Simulated scan of single mutants.
Amino acid sequence: MSTRNQAASRRARLGGAIASLFVVAAVLAGCSSSSDSDAAYVDSGADAEVAEAGAEPAFADAESAQNPQSPVADRSVIITGLMYMTVEDPIESADQAADIVQGAGGRIDARSETAPDERDGGSASLTLRIPSTDLDAVVDDLRDLGTVDQFSTDSYDVTTEVTDLDAQISTLRTSTARIEALLLEAKDIKDIITLENELDRRQAELEGLEARQRGLEDQVSMSTIALSLTTEPVVVVDDAPETFWDGLVAGWNGLVAFISVALVIAGVLLPWLIIMGLIALAIVLPIRARNARNRRRAAPPAPPIATAAPSPSTPDSSQTASATEATADRDS
């Protein structure tokens, strides 16, 4: 009985060991299958991400193909225009226009004014630089200054030029940086001179391209409007006489106007004439008196007149003259 029990216990232990081996094998098999499935999942996820990344540009291209007007917002457009207005006071309206533009963030690049006269009420011209985003609002404010006689704008699309210029600048900057790096590593004097000359040439070219880029950016960001302000034309009335009576009236009015002007001129000149006359007398009278004294001094003395007694044979001249007068009276 004991022998049977021992054999049964051996068989039980052997069965338990075999069962344990089966369990361990099953666990190991499950772990390996789990690892394989995880690796397969990771690989499939990576493939999915790659496929997703590859499909994304295709989807974007398809979307841009379906909506060809989507890049319109990125266009670079230069806007210029002309605006002619009739206002009451061009100078004052020019000041108001300058305030409107500067209030919107713009500037005045040029300004000229003409003062009013008898035939013209004056004028003013301004070159306005207005932010492109606020162009419509500023133009609406300018319309309130007076009557708009003419307004026109032109648009120039420079998107291609801006894009090409950006690409050239980017390429030139990269090549310039590469030459600078080579210049730092150069040992031979000839290589150094060659690299420096090439670097100077490319830097000068880069500065020119950047200046063009800044000019285009300014023209795109700030629209240019030439504003002209004038007044209503002065009407000249032809008041020329057409009849005899009109001519007589015009002549009389002209005579009265001439006399009035002559009297005004005489009134203006009279004090001057009096003063000048007094000055002339003060100068001339002493000169004439001095000249008279000089003439008297220079004249020779007169010779004395000799008085002779009348002779008895010669008649006196007074008696002869009395006889002549008596004869003439008697003859008459």
Rank of each mutant, 00 (worst) to 15 (best):
residue 161 E to D: 12
residue 150 Q to L: 10
residue 150 Q to G: 04
residue 145 L to T: 00
residue 153 T to L: 02
residue 160 T to V: 12
residue 162 V to F: 07
residue 146 G to L: 02
residue 164 D to A: 12
residue 132 S to W: 00
residue 163 T to E: 09
residue 146 G to I: 06
residue 158 V to P: 03
residue 143 R to V: 12
residue 134 D to K: 15
residue 140 D to K: 08
residue 145 L to Q: 04
residue 165 L to G: 06
residue 156 Y to S: 13
residue 158 V to A: 10
residue 139 V to T: 14
residue 133 T to S: 10
residue 149 D to H: 03
residue 144 D to I: 14
residue 135 L to Q: 12
residue 137 A to W: 07
residue 154 D to E: 13
residue 163 T to F: 06
residue 149 D to G: 05
residue 142 L to C: 00
residue 154 D to P: 03
residue 163 T to K: 10
residue 158 V to Y: 12
residue 137 A to H: 10
residue 150 Q to T: 12
residue 157 D to M: 07
residue 137 A to T: 15
residue 161 E to F: 01
residue 162 V to K: 13
residue 138 V to H: 04
residue 149 D to L: 09
residue 136 D to E: 14
residue 145 L to F: 03
residue 148 V to W: 05
residue 158 V to K: 12
residue 142 L to R: 00
residue 139 V to Y: 06
residue 158 V to C: 06
residue 130 I to D: 07
residue 142 L to F: 04
residue 131 P to W: 09
residue 138 V to I: 02
residue 153 T to H: 03
residue 155 S to M: 05
residue 155 S to C: 00
residue 163 T to Y: 06
residue 140 D to S: 09
residue 134 D to Y: 07
residue 148 V to T: 14
residue 140 D to I: 07
residue 159 T to M: 08
residue 141 D to R: 15
residue 130 I to K: 11
residue 130 I to N: 09
residue 165 L to Q: 07
residue 148 V to F: 07
residue 146 G to A: 03
residue 145 L to Y: 00
residue 163 T to R: 12
residue 161 E to H: 06
residue 164 D to Y: 09
residue 135 L to F: 05
residue 161 E to N: 07
residue 163 T to A: 10
residue 147 T to E: 11
residue 130 I to F: 08
residue 163 T to I: 06
residue 133 T to M: 04
residue 157 D to I: 01
residue 164 D to V: 08
residue 158 V to L: 08
residue 160 T to I: 09
residue 133 T to Y: 05
residue 165 L to S: 06
residue 146 G to P: 02
residue 130 I to P: 05
residue 157 D to V: 01
residue 157 D to H: 11
residue 151 F to H: 14
residue 132 S to E: 10
residue 156 Y to T: 15
residue 162 V to D: 08
residue 135 L to E: 09
residue 133 T to F: 04
residue 136 D to T: 15
residue 136 D to K: 14
residue 152 S to G: 09
residue 136 D to C: 04
residue 141 D to L: 13
residue 150 Q to I: 05
residue 150 Q to C: 02
residue 134 D to R: 15
residue 150 Q to K: 11
residue 159 T to Q: 10
residue 139 V to P: 03
residue 141 D to F: 04
residue 142 L to H: 00
residue 154 D to Y: 00
residue 136 D to H: 13
residue 158 V to S: 08
residue 158 V to E: 09
residue 154 D to H: 03
residue 134 D to M: 08
residue 148 V to H: 02
residue 162 V to T: 13
residue 132 S to C: 01
residue 146 G to D: 02
residue 159 T to W: 10
residue 138 V to Q: 03
residue 138 V to Y: 02
residue 165 L to Y: 07
residue 134 D to H: 12
residue 159 T to K: 12
residue 142 L to G: 03
residue 164 D to M: 10
residue 150 Q to N: 13
residue 134 D to I: 02
residue 134 D to F: 02
residue 148 V to M: 06
residue 163 T to W: 05
residue 150 Q to F: 14
residue 154 D to M: 01
residue 135 L to T: 12
residue 137 A to R: 15
residue 131 P to H: 13
